[in-house]
C-alpha cells in the first residue's frame, strides 16, 4: 500500500522553500502565494506586486530555472523546487552581468518592472547564450514596462549575451 499523501491546511502549516539556494522554513496557510511568501514571510522585496493576477510580469521569479508569475503560484506547491529571485543574482558583492548590462544601457526608468525583466533575461541567456533581438523580445513579452524601456532592455540583454560568449 502506498502511503496516503498528507492533506495540508486549511490552518497554517510548516513549509520549507528552496530560495536562492537556501532552505527557508516558513509557517503559512496554503492560500499564501509564492509572491506573498517571498515578500512578507522572507522579506525579499525584489519581486514586485502590481496586478496580482498574472497580467503584468512584475512578480516574475524562476522556478526550476524557468520564469513564472509568483502571484499565481501557491507557495506550498513550490516546496522541493528551486526558486530564484533577483536577490540571488549578485555574487561576492558583484552584480550579475545582466544586472550590470541593465545599468550600462539605462534599461529602466521607474524600475518597477526591472526585477521581473532581469529574471526573464537571465533564464533566456542561461538556456541559450546565442540570442537575437527577436528572442529577447519574445522572452520579455510577459513583462510589461509602463515606462517603455523596451529598446534599452533589448540592448542590455544583447550586450549581456555578448559578454557571456
Amino acid at each position: 500500500m502506498p502511503r496516503a499523501t498528507p492533506v495540508l491546511g486549511p490552518a497554517a502549516v510548516d513549509v520549507t522553500l528552496d530560495v536562492n539556494g537556501h532552505a527557508r522554513a516558513i509557517h503559512i496557510r496554503p492560500q499564501r502565494t509564492l509572491l506573498d511568501a517571498l515578500r512578507e514571510d522572507l522579506g525579499l522585496m525584489g519581486a514586485k506586486k502590481v496586478c496580482d493576477e498574472g497580467t503584468c510580469g512584475a512578480c516574475t521569479v524562476l522556478v526550476d530555472g524557468r520564469p513564472v508569475y509568483a502571484c499565481m503560484t501557491l507557495a506550498v506547491a513550490t516546496a522541493g523546487r528551486a526558486v530564484e529571485t533577483v536577490e540571488g543574482l549578485a555574487h561576492d558583492g558583484g552584480l550579475h552581468p545582466v544586472q550590470e548590462a541593465f545599468i550600462a544601457h539605462d534599461a529602466f526608468q521607474c524600475g518597477f518592472c526591472t526585477p521581473g525583466q532581469i529574471m526573464s533575461v537571465v533564464a533566456l541567456l542561461r538556456a541559450r547564450p546565442d540570442v537575437t533581438a527577436d528572442d529577447v523580445k519574445r522572452a520579455v513579452t510577459g513583462n510589461l514596462c509602463r515606462c517603455g524601456a523596451y529598446p534599452n532592455i533589448v540592448a542590455a540583454a544583447l550586450a549581456a549575451a555578448k559578454r557571456k560568449k
Binding site: P2, T5, L8, G9, P10, R29, P30, Q31, A77
Partner: peptide
C-alpha cells in the same frame, strides 16, 4: 482567496 486545504496527489487513483 478563501482558506482551503492543499494536497499533492501521487497518482490518478489517489
Amino acid at each position: 482567496m478563501k482558506p482551503f486545504a492543499y494536497v499533492r496527489a501521487g497518482s490518478v487513483a489517489e
